[in-house]
């Protein structure tokens, strides 16, 4: 799922590209905003964000059609693969977070 929906831009190793696509490896942004990730994955994001001191301002398109289970799986895959050290996101939590952008 990560490979198909995210790795095109953020790359398989999560390192992103220059100041164009931000990294998804462990960063201050990821840790502070993990609760917003469900909405970002689902609806996309526009406007500037700062990740580890670097500003990124490319529009990210949403991934329409992903189910809460799939979104939860992607977040937990990143948490595990990129070693965020966060507790796995439960499906009811993902659904809760998704309400913020519905």
């Amino acid at each position: 799922m990560y490979e198909f929906h995210c790795a095109g831009c953020h790359l398989e190793d999560g390192t992103g590209l220059g100041e164009i696509y931000p990294p998804l490896t462990k960063s201050d942004y990821v840790i502070e905003n993990i609760k917003d990730f469900a909405c970002i994955i689902s609806k996309g994001i526009r406007g500037p964000i700062t990740v580890d001191g670097i500003e990124y301002n490319e529009e990210m398109p949403g991934n329409k059609g992903l189910t809460p289970v799939e979104i939860s799986n992607i977040i937990n895959y990143m948490n595990h693969t990129f070693d965020y050290g966060l507790a796995p996101q439960q499906l009811h939590e993902t659904k809760e977070y998704l309400k913020r952008c519905e």
Partner: peptide
């Protein structure tokens, strides 16, 4: 390009 370009650029 949402597919291979970032990979190639890397």
């Amino acid at each position: 390009c949402p597919t291979i370009c970032p990979k190639v650029k890397k």
